[in-house]
């Protein structure tokens, strides 16, 4: 019998308990509440608070990438890199652009 090409995108997930995702969920929750506590519970100077919560946000973004978004999987790493590069470009355009546009009122 001729084996026909089946173009389905989703391959069946390996069975078993999704430990990675559960750990990721709890880490994300912990980081979120930690940021909340740093901002509301501690009365640090504003620049330090901002630095700390931005740092926590970056850690959380990495958790998202590795634990939920299949960053290490896939056949072609160039797709991943293009996606990340475009994401960084958009994030930079937005943050830097906004700061520049609104600089006159800061």
């Amino acid at each position: 019998m001729i084996k026909e090409y089946k173009n389905t995108a989703v391959k069946p997930e390996p069975k078993g308990f999704p430990w990675k995702q559960v750990v990721g969920l709890f880490l994300s929750l912990a980081l979120t509440f930690l940021a909340l506590w740093v901002a509301l519970g501690l009365s640090l100077p504003v620049p330090i608070t901002l630095t700390v919560i931005v740092g926590l946000a970056i850690i959380q973004a990495l958790i998202q990438l590795f634990m939920f978004m299949h960053f290490t999987e896939g056949t072609d790493p160039s797709h991943q890199m293009m996606g990340i590069a475009f994401g960084l470009f958009v994030a930079f355009a937005m943050v830097a652009g906004t700061l520049w546009i609104m600089a006159f009122m800061l």
Binding site: F89, G97, A103
Partner: peptide, 20 residues
């Protein structure tokens, strides 16, 4: 790519600086 770099033209008159 360019579509993410033009948004300010909707509010040129909102008081931004000339270089912007």
């Amino acid at each position: 790519i360019l579509s993410f770099l033009t948004w300010l033209h909707h509010f040129f008159t909102m008081g931004n600086t000339a270089p912007v």
